[in-house]
Nucleic acid binder design. Structure first.
Lengths: 350, 350
DNA sequence: CGCGTAACTGCAAACGATTACAGTGGGATG
DNA sequence: CATCCCACTGTAATCGTTTGCAGTTACGCG
């Protein structure tokens, strides 16, 4: 069983055991010189007693916890898992531990995550908000530790960020559907008052406009960013406008729900209705037909965000604020009855 | 931007500001009495200066970090996400933060997670190992902080654990397939030398035996626990034994791969080949046809593990070792051409 | 042999909070 | 008015580590 409190050897134990001062133990163990015999004795004592430095004491003294937090809306959405994976890679390589915080897309929880930085348990935060309220901006401005936002923040807030170009992504999807001969393209969106919801709506309208198609509000529906909501919204829309020949879904979860609804109402995908999702998650490969999806570079956003944060933490000088954007890429699969594709890039913007 | 180091107010700052000692500040802020005017002054100073107690200092003094770690094999597998979600719920409710560690099913990483407890950055660990080596048992026995294992550990290791009954789960699946009229049932397994791999293999054999079917080793294949491996294994098996009429897959990822292979070789599911997965993840609902899957109670295992850990952390007395087991349950969907089901229970075993 | 220099070492002060202990005051009681 | 009690407060030690500073030692060189 695990050791009783007060049992673990401290630097003091080692010092007594090796007949030197605690200062020497610390120095030897951190590799800062020492006479060969001292080094040997300390090393020996340390291994013999199985000494491990106390991380909390070290953090207190050193002023940093070597931990970073990732706060995301919903751990059930595979797109965030993709981010977590990359973030974990980067931060672990840099010697940081990763704390997780699934906020449930609740602004209050997001603010809590930001405010929690004040207690210094975390050296930095990667925040993936889905709505950005004035309160967010306020807290971002006075945050106690560096924050990197995955998403869009107004220019005037001097915070590192990595955003996807959702608008262009949605436009890409619509144009692809039009190129494939679709004319009555529905939009199954998430909540209208979220940043991604608004952006994808805008991109959808822009896509229609560019292609010279009319914008029929009856083809647009708002719900949540999950499969259950997606299925319900699709059924609704299909009932309301039976002639729909394509559905652009604001994320892959919604798309999966839509596929279910389409099967449930006896339509073939892609023959009767084409479907396109967003995020290019593992789900897109798992479902049937395989889902054409707009890849918003979640992996890359995760990696970049983590790298930005680490850079800011490790840099002694204050690097200038970075605002990165990742370019969308359409990954064509079976659900839209077509085969053309585009490729991804990301570019730095400021 | 975030505040420069040394800027944040400490208990000392508040003390000076309120004209009292640091002890009084601490007491007031922890709600341990005080004269009304003192309380008022301290509270006022604290809010005015935006004081937040330093978590590291508190941890050092208090001897606990109020953090727990969850180490799992693969964050890309939705079954572990289901666990994370529940674990996070429980530990947050108890006032703990959650650290994440995806080990990549690498025993060395798992051992590292165990040993990392020695630096006291985490008060406890929930470990989900996929192999259990003697080294694991050794480290478990001398771990520096409480550990709860999700999975099977030998009786003689006195560690809290929550296990699924994979053997019975696999047996359930096979019996169901036989009841649905299948006779040549293949097994697409993960690695043979893993605990779940071995258990599911055993359950598969037991199922065949109980139903009086011959056990043909040609129908069994071992690979990894992911979709790519599942697809390859399925193609192999189908080429080797064209007459297979059912595939029992050791997890949902493998099953998703198998579905792809079946479609690729022009077979209908469930008409030609029935498919059953394990874990009942979100994927089972997302794919087509919807996947019949053995629910091994991942959500409940996550919850129970977290509760066990919290109980051991908060309890002053040492609670006896708990070994919980969660009962499997078959969730029938379209992929096996049948409609009967069973229900889940879990029971305490020691 | 004396001196300067360099390497090593130990003491003690931080880091920021909690808390045992002792002191202070006020009010109630005799 | 003296006494006791109690609630409150402050001092200082403590958690375990790192690190500035000063003191020690050894060694090379003139």
């Amino acid at each position: 069983m695990h050791s009783r409190p007060g049992t673990a050897p401290t630097i003091e134990t080692i010092a007594r055991h090796a007949g030197v001062s605690t200062a020497s133990v610390s120095r030897v163990l951190r590799g800062l010189g020492g006479r060969p015999d001292t080094v040997a004795r300390v090393r020996a004592a340390a291994t013999e007693l199985g000494y491990v430095p106390n991380a909390m004491a070290r953090s207190l003294r050193g002023g940093q916890s070597r931990q970073v937090t990732f706060a995301m809306p919903d751990i059930g959405n595979p797109v965030y898992i993709a981010m977590v994976r990359r973030i974990q890679q980067v931060v672990r390589a840099a010697g940081y531990r990763l704390l997780l915080h699934s906020t449930g897309a609740d602004p209050a929880e997001e603010l809590a995550a930001l405010r929690a930085l004040a207690d210094r348990h975390s050296d930095g935060l990667i925040l993936c908000p889905i709505r950005v309220t004035p309160a967010h901006l306020e807290e971002l401005a006075r945050s106690a530790a560096p924050v990197v936002v995955i998403g869009s923040v107004p220019e005037e807030v001097p915070v590192d960020s990595v955003r996807a170009d959702s608008v262009t992504g949605a436009e890409l999807a619509v144009r692809h559907l039009v190129a494939a001969g679709r004319r009555r393209i529905g939009l199954l969106n998430g909540p209208a008052d979220t940043v991604p919801g608004a952006a994808r709506h805008r991109g959808y309208e822009r896509g229609l406009e560019v292609c010279g198609l009319p914008h029929d509000p009856a083809l647009t529906s708002f719900g949540r960013f999950d499969a259950v909501s997606g299925e319900a919204a699709a059924r609704d829309l299909l009932a309301r406008v039976p002639g729909v020949d394509a559905l652009f879904c604001a994320n892959d979860l919604i798309a999966v729900g839509a596929l279910r609804a389409l099967r449930g109402t006896g339509r073939d995908v892609p023959a009767d209705v084409a479907v396109v999702g967003v995020d290019n998650t593992d789900l897109a490969e798992a479902c049937w037909p395989p889902l054409t999806s707009v890849d918003l570079g979640s992996q890359e956003r995760g990696r970049l965000a983590a790298e930005l944060l680490i850079a800011r933490l490790d840099a002694s000088g204050r690097p200038p604020v970075s605002r990165l954007a990742v370019q969308p890429r359409l990954v064509v699969r079976g659900s839209c009855g077509s085969t053309a594709g585009t490729t991804a890039t990301h570019k730095e913007m400021s």
